[in-house]
Computed example of a mutant assay.
Amino acid sequence: MRKALVIGSTLLGAGCATAPPPAVPVAPPIISTSGLERVLGHDAHDLVALFGEPELDVREDQARKLQFVGPICVLDAYLYSKNGREPVVTYLDARQPDGRDIDRASCVAALIANKKR
């Protein structure tokens, strides 16, 4: 009988344990494309016309990365091809020359201004 009470109270205590709170889904961060209209969706020819010759041009399968460097920032433009069409920019990454983050639209504007000089 004593054994049954110990087992019963153990099971009862286990039932009272608090469950972890349910996981709350986290929305992905919203990445603004404001100020990037002159770059996103454009091909390599358009980028060269806008920024000048890239410092780096890497091709792999249907993907291409063009890197443009100015005194204020470094811009990596990632171009992808769909259905055999000309690759276009689908994503941009920007950083200062020392690696710190910089706003992508600010980098685009700085590179355009630098080319006009």
Rank of each mutant, 00 (worst) to 15 (best):
G15W: 13
E53V: 11
L66C: 01
R104N: 14
S81Q: 13
K116E: 13
K115H: 13
P29G: 05
S34V: 15
D43I: 08
P28S: 08
A44E: 11
N83H: 09
M1Y: 07
E55R: 14
R100F: 04
V6Y: 10
Q96K: 14
Y78V: 02
A109D: 15
L66Y: 01
H45K: 06
G70R: 03
L36E: 13
S32P: 06
L75Y: 04
V48Q: 09
P54C: 08
T90Y: 11
G70W: 03
P21L: 11
L111V: 00
I102P: 03
D57N: 11
A49K: 15
R95E: 14
K82N: 05
P87S: 05
S106N: 13
A4D: 09
D76W: 05
N83Y: 05
E53C: 06
L66A: 02
A113N: 04
P54A: 06
A49C: 12
G84S: 06
C107E: 08
A44Y: 01
R59T: 08
E37I: 05
G13M: 15
K65Y: 02
T90H: 09
P87I: 07
G13T: 12
V89T: 05
P71K: 11
D101I: 02
L66T: 01
T18R: 13
D93F: 14
P22S: 06
A14F: 13
E53H: 12
K82R: 10
I31S: 00
D61Q: 11
R104Y: 01
D93V: 11
L36G: 01
P54M: 10
D93M: 14
D98S: 05
